[in-house]
Amino acid sequence: MTDWIDAHHHLWDLEAVLYPWLMARGVERFFGDPTPIQRNYLLREFRSEAAPCGVGASIHIQVGAKNGLDEARWVQSIADANPGWPMAQVVFCDLTSADLSNQLDTIQDLPTARGVRQIVGRAPGEDAQTGTNSLLDDPRFLDGLQEAGRRDLSFDLQLIPDLIGKTTRILAQASNTRVALCHAGSPHDRTPAGLKSWAQRLRALSDLPHVSCKLSGLGMFDHNWTPDSIRPIVEICLEQFGPKRVMFGSNFPVDKLYGNYAALVQAYRDLVPAEAQSAVFRETAAHFYDLEVP
Rank of each mutant, 00 (worst) to 15 (best):
G115W: 02
N67Y: 04
R29Q: 15
S250Q: 05
T132V: 13
Q173R: 15
L218H: 05
F248L: 11
D222W: 00
A274T: 14
F155S: 09
F30Y: 15
T167S: 15
E235P: 03
W198D: 11
R269M: 07
D127E: 11
A72Q: 13
L171I: 13
E49C: 01
L291F: 08
N224F: 02
N176A: 13
Q103L: 02
G64T: 10
L22A: 03
I170S: 09
A128T: 15
A262Y: 01
T2L: 08
G249L: 04
Q129F: 04
L163P: 04
A148Q: 07
P52Y: 06
L145I: 11
D156G: 01
G54C: 05
F248E: 09
P187M: 01
G219P: 06
A172V: 09
Y289L: 06
P209I: 03
L159V: 13
L104G: 11
P36L: 00
L135R: 07
R231Y: 04
D13T: 12
R114E: 09
W198S: 07
V17Y: 07
P139S: 03
W225Y: 09
A81T: 11
E71W: 01
L159I: 14
R140D: 14
S77I: 12
N102M: 03
F281H: 08
P294Y: 00
T284A: 10
H183K: 08
E28M: 10
D99S: 12
L271S: 10
D99A: 05
R29W: 02
L42H: 13
I160D: 09
A193T: 14
R25F: 00
N260A: 02
P227W: 01
V63E: 14
I37C: 06
F248W: 15
